[in-house]
């Protein structure tokens, strides 16, 4: 029974996503699934460790470019490409993590944003020789077909990304329930107390930083394989707030938040861009509005209502979903 409760949320969500595939266009669904993986990393950083990072596009670009370099210069297997992308993100975050996690949260946010801009310049101007600058790297035709799930076919890619998203989601759910997840939350709330309890704040934060940014790099690598090309636009500072907006829109620190946020954000982006064309105006004021009025986000405000409605007849100690 306990195991069932643990799993029902994930089964239901991804079954719903699978069903939605029938009604909604495929590119939209692919975008939503990749975006939700992207937002999950950011959500972990904000909700569990208390670090707001405006530099997520940098890690996205690290993953995407690592994957792209592999697919453009060396191999053809998309699975290996994604693995290389994740490894790239892992190595980079291990290298810069020790420097960044020492910082206060406000400095952390600013340094990360600066990093995103630097990565943008790096890919656009400095490393033109291997990144081809603004033209980007095109390798869609180089990706080879693989047996079971052929990633070059969008519908197969959707199944793959859905499975991967479920895996990532389950991983974060597991983290949340573990002692480590509790430690992360404790560094956010009261780091001194945690230190007195004998835990090492630095290593907890470093691990969280590496986990979250590897997830982001995974999303980047998936974008690279899905689109078949990468360009510096990925790390553009004007998109720096995207994952933060999605996370806050969905509900900070909730497990379903990133998915709900990704659906809402991608949907609005499609509709609004078609209607008024001035996307920045809308998203900017939406962000201000959310921050001022409903900073719990969509899922954060919806969950208590749903819980009350769904679990009315259950005993009060049942945890339900969170």
């Amino acid at each position: 029974m306990n195991a069932l409760r643990w799993w029902w949320g994930i089964l239901l969500t991804f079954a719903l996503l699978g069903i939605a595939r029938v009604f909604l266009p495929l590119p939209f669904m692919n975008e939503v699934v990749i975006f939700s993986i992207y937002a999950m990393g950011c959500n972990f950083l904000i909700g569990r460790v208390g670090y707001i990072s405006f530099g997520q596009p940098a890690y996205l670009a690290f993953g995407a470019y690592a994957c792209a370099f592999y697919l453009f210069y060396f191999g053809t297997n998309p699975y290996v490409g994604i693995l290389v992308g994740v490894l790239g993100g892992l190595i980079v975050s291990l290298l810069i993590g020790p420097l960044f996690v020492r910082l206060r949260s406000d400095y952390f946010a600013m340094v990360n944003l600066a990093l995103a801009v630097i990565v943008f310049y790096l890919t656009q101007k400095v490393l033109v020789g291997i990144t081809h600058g603004d033209n980007g790297l095109w390798f869609l035709t180089r990706i080879s077909s693989t047996p079971l799930l052929d990633l070059t076919i969008p519908s197969h890619f959707f199944i793959f990304s859905l499975l991967l998203a479920a895996l990532v989601w389950a991983f974060y759910k597991y983290l949340d329930d573990s002692i480590y997840g509790a430690c992360c939350l404790a560094t956010k709330i009261n780091e001194n107390k945690l230190q007195f309890l004998g835990y090492h704040n630095f290593s907890i934060r470093l691990l969280a930083f590496v986990i979250a940014n590897s997830t982001t790099a995974l999303a980047g690598a998936m974008y690279a394989v899905y689109l078949g090309f990468v360009s510096p636009e990925m790390a553009s500072p004007s998109r720096a707030a995207d994952p933060v907006i999605v996370t806050i829109l969905g509900g900070v620190g909730t497990l379903f938040g990133p998915i709900v946020g990704a659906i809402a954000y991608t949907g609005m982006k499609d509709v609004i861009s078609k209607l008024i064309g001035n996307w920045e105006l809308f998203i900017g004021f939406l962000l201000v509005f959310i921050m001022l009025v409903a900073d719990k986000g969509i899922w954060g405000s919806l969950a208590p209502v749903l819980e009350k409605w769904l679990f009315r007849r259950k005993s009060p100690d049942s945890r339900g979903h969170d």
Partner: peptide, 20 residues
């Protein structure tokens, strides 16, 4: 402070929309 950072980023992006 990070809360104000998100909000002000929203103002910045929205304002860019107005200037456009």
């Amino acid at each position: 402070p990070t809360f104000s950072m998100i909000t002000s980023f929203g103002i910045l992006i929205g304002g860019i929309g107005i200037i456009k």
